[in-house]
Design a protein around this nucleic acid. Sequence first.
DNA 1: AGGTACTGTGGGAGCGCTCCCACAGGTGAT
DNA 2: ATCACCTGTGGGAGCGCTCCCACAGTACCT
Lengths: 351, 351
Amino acid sequence: MAAYGARSRGGRRPTLEEVAARAGVGRGTVSRVINGSPRVSDATREAVEAAVAELGYVPNTAARALAANRTDAIAMVVPEPETRFFAEPYFSDMLRGVGSQLSETEMQLVLIFAGSDRERRRLAQYLAAHRVDGVLLVSVHADDPLPDLLAQLEIPAVISGRRSAEETLPSVDSDNYSGARSAVEHLLARGRSTIGTITGRLEVYGAQRRVDGYRGSLRDAGHEVDEDLIVAGDFTEEGGRRAMAELLRRRPGLDAVFAGSDVMAAGARQVLREAGRRIPDDVALVGFDDSAIARHMDPPLTSVRQPIEEMGRAMIDLLLAEIADGRPAASRGLDRQQVVLPTRLVERASS
Amino acid sequence: MAAYGARSRGGRRPTLEEVAARAGVGRGTVSRVINGSPRVSDATREAVEAAVAELGYVPNTAARALAANRTDAIAMVVPEPETRFFAEPYFSDMLRGVGSQLSETEMQLVLIFAGSDRERRRLAQYLAAHRVDGVLLVSVHADDPLPDLLAQLEIPAVISGRRSAEETLPSVDSDNYSGARSAVEHLLARGRSTIGTITGRLEVYGAQRRVDGYRGSLRDAGHEVDEDLIVAGDFTEEGGRRAMAELLRRRPGLDAVFAGSDVMAAGARQVLREAGRRIPDDVALVGFDDSAIARHMDPPLTSVRQPIEEMGRAMIDLLLAEIADGRPAASRGLDRQQVVLPTRLVERASS
DNA sequence: AGGTACTGTGGGAGCGCTCCCACAGGTGAT
DNA sequence: ATCACCTGTGGGAGCGCTCCCACAGTACCT
């Protein structure tokens, strides 16, 4: 505990001015040392650092925020109710990446849920008050007004998962197209010929791209795409069940299924089992996400791994760059603003 | 979007002073209106409110924090790595309660993980900088130095789950003793006679109290307590498996098990099944927490429900009272500072 | 010697609030 | 009429920083 500075016990905390007096220098100099400016002589720096340590000085963030007009905090906004947030491994993996990357800096992370209307109104206030220097948007729908609000307020933001082919915000996404291709090519290589797919909600750009990948790899392999083998799900387990039942009805003889998410694959597995289909003997199954449930499924699920933790880290990198680069948002070309990370197929017993 | 105030677009935000000028009043008066002081005439209040709306004024939190020496934010500190946080439904339920209660106020919630040493150091800095008005401590061990640090810094805090019988911090806990009693009494009423128990980590006070409840109800029913029927677990699924195996070794004829948590009950169930014991026919099983996994187990698990969401709400109430009550901590008697919420047995097919 | 160009430093001004004292004007008791 | 005491209001001071201008000192030219 001693390291925390016994001197800060109770009462008033030391100020910059007091540190300056103790070190025998001016306020400006202490400020420069605290902020790591190079324009300070070594001797002075040491004297100041000693005074800081002796007094247990800790900068007052409110004063700094007021004077410098920055908050040293960023928000991760999750436009989902908390329940979903915790149910989906996607979010917690992302949070882990974000947290680890951020702990390299002095920045603080504020987690904000904006599921209900009331929460949304609070968020709008919060952003209008500029209580954060930047915002991480975690899974916004294409028609969400949040990005516009952020642009209007000129708050730097990064989005996870593009909303469309021409995303205007800086974004980090995984390569959904190639990921889907690798899954389908794997099934083809295993000799499967009638491959169905259960899609995510098609308003989600990434879900679309996965279907595109499915189509592309079949076509490239010389197969004609049978539209009856494509059934829409909604990323939920229940949706996976319904879609699988529909697939079995349409094409009872199918021998493989590519599900657009692990959770939907879990739903599909139940229906396949109830229908007496063995996995992978009768029907091979591949998921997407490589979340924890893929490993724990019976049999363990082959799945396309998205590097979600790295995506979180990349988002922080983009956001910090944007904040550093003068406040303005994505106005200097979309070059390095759209990061797409590769996926990788993880083969397990289900295929 | 119009409601967000088109006037705040870009550039500078309006200040108190500008609102005052527009409303034709002084700065002090605007401040009083903003902060809901009653000492303002109705006519003036309306004029100010109109000016606020027209200019799209939003108070600058940094300036307010600096002048008033408060931050309008509280932190929820989780001394666990993020992984565990998300794995345990306990935390997310608590977060839900905290969030809902807090959304009644202007306070902001900051979620802080303090699992690693580095995270701990950052937290110490954060607290020393007084970046929050109060702290919610979510599951601290008895020997954690955090409470002392908070006391030293004179930061109001509330703890979830007492650390010992004479907890010094304001706390919110569930009635672990009675909860355990209700579980065991239920098993006795169902005609079970050889009831084992799998405990949580006994450094955790609540885990101890559950064992106390187990002992107490057996004794009150005229049974002698067989120490061989008490095996220590550690709140994990794996620990539950190990403990169950040990119980079966020691007392193969046991006909019921009370597990100190649902997760451990899940582990125990696996071992029981592998050992060919039917649930509840051969062995009745009862858990603690009534978390989501209790409902989804096969068979669904009878469990002692803790009102975790309400606990979260109660923590906020205590903390806000403490913050309002002049800054000093728990120094005016422990009367209303220790809240204990009742538990309730939820009967399902496992018993 | 004078000029130019650094580097390092001190300290004034100002960020946008809250707090509080001062004071005007009204009301009612004496 | 005088005093006491409200209510409502204005505005100075100050919170603890950062920013930036000014300037001393040194170094290196011409």
